[in-house]
C-alpha cells in the first residue's frame, strides 16, 4: 500500500473543551497508480486532509503511513516525502518566481542538490510531460497565458519525480480548453504510473477522469466509491453542497418520464450511448 490514512483527526483548537474537528476520524488507503478524486463543499476538510499526506500538517490523532512508515514519526525524512508526494496548491502559478520558465522548473531539483545537468534534464522532461512548448522555455513565466503558467507550475513539482501527485483545484479559473489540457496531463501522468489525487469542485471533471471518488462532508469521509455509485446518490450530494454532472440529471428525468434507461451514467459519451440504445439506434 502506497498511502494509508488511519483514523486521523485534526482540530485547529486542541485546547477547547469540545474541539471542532476539521478532519473527523478519516481512514482510507491509496494504491500505486490510482486516479482518485477528492470532493466536498468549501470548508469540508479536503485541503487539511491533503496536507497530512506530504507532512505539512500533523494529525491531532491517528496516523498517516507512506509505504508503511508513519510520516509524523520522529526523524522521518520529510524532505524526501515531499519530493515523493508532490502537492500542487490552488493557483500554483502564483508561486512562479524565476526569470525564465526553465530556471523556475529547475528550482526543485536544484534544492535537492542535483548537479546542474541533471537539474536541466529533469526540468526539460517535466516540461515535456505537461506538453509545454519548447520555444517558450526561455520566456519569463509571467508573460505566459493562464493555462501555460499553470502547466509550468505543475512541471516544477514533476521535476522532483514524485510518485504521487496531489492537485488542489487545478482547473479553477481556466477556460474549457485549458481545463481539458490540464486534466489530460493528469491522465497521461497517471498512465505512466503516477498516482493522482485530484481535489475538485467540478463534478463534470471528476466524472470524466477519476476511477474512485472520496467525498468529504464536515470533516467526515462519507463516500469512498466509484463514480457511478457516488453520482447515483445525487440527492445526498446536493444535501452536502455538491451535485451530480448535468447528464446524470438528464438520465434521471428520462427515467421518471418512463424510459427504461440506466441512471448510473455520468459522462456525455455514455449518456449518448444509453439514450441511443433505448431509441433503438
Amino acid at each position: 500500500m502506497q498511502i494509508e490514512v488511519k483514523d486521523v483527526c485534526y482540530t485547529y483548537t486542541p485546547e477547547a473543551e469540545q474541539p471542532k474537528f476539521a478532519v473527523d476520524h478519516v481512514s482510507f488507503s491509496v494504491e500505486e497508480g490510482e486516479f482518485i478524486a477528492l470532493i466536498g463543499h468549501t470548508g469540508s476538510g479536503k485541503s487539511t486532509l491533503i496536507q497530512f499526506l506530504d507532512g505539512l500538517l500533523k494529525p491531532t490523532s491517528g496516523e498517516v503511513l507512506f509505504h508503511g512508515e508513519n510520516v509524523a514519526a520522529k526523524g522521518y525524512d520529510l524532505k524526501t516525502l515531499r519530493q515523493k508526494v508532490g502537492l500542487v496548491f490552488q493557483y500554483p502559478e502564483y508561486q512562479l518566481f524565476e526569470t525564465t520558465v526553465l530556471k523556475d522548473v529547475c528550482y526543485g531539483p536544484k534544492n535537492m542538490g542535483l548537479p546542474k545537468e541533471e537539474q536541466e534534464a529533469r526540468a526539460k522532461e517535466a516540461l515535456s510531460l505537461v506538453r509545454f512548448p519548447e520555444a517558450s522555455y526561455e520566456k519569463s513565466p509571467f508573460d505566459l497565458s493562464g493555462g501555460r503558467k499553470r502547466r509550468a507550475a505543475i512541471a516544477g513539482i514533476l521535476a522532483m519525480k514524485p510518485e504521487v501527485l496531489i492537485l488542489d483545484e487545478p482547473t479553477a479559473g481556466l477556460d474549457p480548453e485549458g481545463r481539458e489540457d490540464i486534466l489530460n496531463v493528469c491522465r497521461n501522468l497517471n498512465d505512466q504510473g503516477i498516482t493522482v489525487i485530484l481535489v475538485s469542485h467540478s463534478m463534470e471533471d471528476v466524472a470524466e477522469y477519476a476511477k474512485r471518488i472520496l467525498v468529504m462532508n464536515q470533516g467526515k469521509l462519507i463516500y469512498d466509491a466509484p463514480p457511478e455509485k457516488v453520482f447515483s446518490d445525487w440527492r445526498k450530494l446536493e444535501e452536502i453542497g455538491l451535485s451530480a454532472p448535468e447528464v446524470t440529471y438528464v438520465m434521471e428525468g428520462l427515467r421518471k418520464a418512463g424510459f427504461d434507461v440506466r441512471t448510473d451514467v455520468f459522462t456525455v459519451e455514455k449518456a449518448k450511448e444509453e439514450i441511443l440504445r433505448v431509441f433503438g439506434k
Binding site: G40, H41, T42, Q90, E169, A172, G173, H201, M203, E238, G241, L242, S243
Partner: peptide
C-alpha cells in the same frame, strides 16, 4: 469577474 471560480456547486 468570475465570481464563481472558487466556489463549490451549491455556492455557485
Amino acid at each position: 469577474d468570475e465570481p464563481t471560480a472558487m466556489l463549490d456547486p451549491v455556492g455557485r
